[in-house]
């Protein structure tokens, strides 16, 4: 794939024909769905998801999991987030919400004009401290592969600025898969304070007003663990998705 792309990029100003990110297919799928062409939408959706699985897909991870990645990955750098630039017009110098890991970072350090805003290298300790801040702010950690199975990016996502969450929630295209965990609520411990509701980026939590208890829809839950971190009453527990028969296939 890389070799093909290199050939394509040899001439200055040429628009590459190879769709590594399936962006054009997703765009056509969205258009087909908007126009009510369900058959075409399903075809394009399957094609885009297959391409994503081979080249560029993401998965939701918890803070603990992403810290483990920080221990084994090298080098680690902060990057300007391409989704927020695209969707919300963030300026590059105020847009360092994502992380890149692996040797690709050296390429961008060597040729800063090849990546907007450049890279800011971090030690694993700095990275962990920063990820804790980001978690406190309420962003969802995800990892992204660049050519399966190589993980090249850690993103901190939110709806609707992030393309993965947007395509998944609004258009049913699974470039982003759910995490290994799912949040379950202990209703005896829950006081209905509502702190968890504002933390959810996936519309999975609401408060049942008559019972004054939270309700988590496990089929919508992506298992990011943001609600669990904020709960003061320890009412939310993360359990492994595969330990629940009804959710084991819900990715």
């Amino acid at each position: 794939m890389f070799r093909l792309r290199k050939e394509e990029m040899k001439k200055e100003g040429v628009v590459p024909d190879i769709q590594t990110m399936a962006e054009d297919i997703i765009e056509q799928a969205i258009r087909a769905r908007d126009l009510g062409d369900t058959k075409k939408y399903m075809e394009l959706k399957t094609q885009a998801e297959k391409m994503a699985q081979n080249v560029h897909f993401g998965q939701v991870v918890t803070l603990e999991q992403v810290k483990k990645i920080m221990d084994i990955a090298y080098p680690i750098a902060r990057l300007s987030c391409v989704c927020r630039r695209r969707s919300r017009g963030f300026k590059d110098d105020e847009n360092f919400f994502c992380m890149g890991i692996g040797v690709g970072m050296y390429k961008w350090e060597r040729w800063p004009e090849s990546y907007r805003g450049g890279v800011h290298f971090m030690t694993p300790e700095e990275a962990k401290a920063w990820l804790e801040q980001v978690n406190e702010a309420g962003l969802v950690h995800t990892f992204w592969v660049f050519g399966t199975p190589y993980i090249g990016g850690i993103c901190n996502c939110e709806y609707p600025a992030c393309i993965g969450i947007r395509n998944r929630l609004d258009y049913g295209i699974s470039m982003l898969v759910k995490g290994e965990y799912v949040a379950l609520l202990d209703r005896d411990m829950c006081t209905g304070c509502g702190l968890c509701v504002e933390r959810c980026q996936f519309r999975a939590i609401n408060i049942e007003r008559t019972m004054l208890k939270a309700q988590i829809n496990p089929f919508r839950c992506f298992g990011c663990g943001l609600c669990e971190k904020k709960c003061k009453h320890n009412a939310i527990k993360l359990v492994e998705r595969e330990s629940l028969a009804g959710l084991a296939q819900e990715w």
Partner: peptide, 20 residues
């Protein structure tokens, strides 16, 4: 920034070799 449902996206119309 102002669109309540984030309808718009900004996309590069052209790509270049080795630079953004």
């Amino acid at each position: 920034k102002i669109c309540p449902t984030a309808v718009f996206v900004a996309r590069p119309s052209q790509m270049f070799k080795f630079r953004e």
